[in-house]
């Protein structure tokens, strides 16, 4: 689908495929779901406005790039406080309150540790673990080598481990 054929049907397909990735990526950057959801809208509006210029093969990197730029333009870097929902906690059944509280404590430490990670290794690590993006896919989306992605994800795991050792 090229040029003027890119109508709302095309746009809906792209939205369905990429919205979650872009919204989640913005959440990993901003740490605030309302900001992430608003910026995700802006990203797709930019795509709509530039639909005739966008090359299908570079669509995903294009969306990630706009997301990053919009975030940097609008939001100054500040201390992050990621607040994820933990499905493991929700699904614990028939366990003692003591066990549930231990899991919660671990979850809080992990979320704090994730918030403390540097931006690049945090976003690559979370896109890989939560959004199931393969190393190659991340590399392609951000215009970096697979080796660079591997390095950032290893760095994330190393830093997380160090933070846990320091008793968060």
């Amino acid at each position: 689908m090229e040029g003027t054929k890119k109508g709302t049907d095309w746009f809906k397909t792209i939205f369905d495929e990429y919205y979650d990735y872009i919204r989640n990526y913005l959440f990993y950057l901003a740490g605030d779901i309302e900001i992430a959801e608003d910026l995700a809208q802006d990203v797709f509006m930019k795509l709509w406005e530039n639909r005739d210029k966008v090359n299908e093969s570079t669509l995903k990197p294009f969306l990630f790039k706009i997301a990053k730029n919009l975030f940097l333009n609008l939001h100054k870097r500040k201390k992050l406080n990621l607040e994820f929902v933990n499905s493991r906690l929700e699904n614990i059944e028939n366990e003692s309150p003591q066990f549930v509280l231990e899991v919660k404590e671990f979850d809080e430490k992990l979320q704090r540790a994730l918030s403390n990670l540097p931006e690049q290794c945090r976003t690559y690590f979370l896109l890989n673990r939560i959004d199931d993006m393969k190393y190659q896919d991340i590399a392609k989306s951000f215009g970096v080598s697979v080796k660079a992605v591997e390095k950032q994800i290893s760095k994330a795991i190393k830093l997380l481990r160090e933070q846990f050792d320091q008793k968060l």
Partner: peptide
């Protein structure tokens, strides 16, 4: 545990994907 726990995390949402699309469609 760090890896398993991270995989159990979900990004919260204040609006559903469908609502996000409707908002976008209106803006277009």
């Amino acid at each position: 545990n760090i890896i398993q726990f991270t995989q159990d995390l979900r990004v919260p949402a204040t609006i559903s994907k469908e609502e996000a699309w409707q908002r976008l469609e209106k803006n277009i």
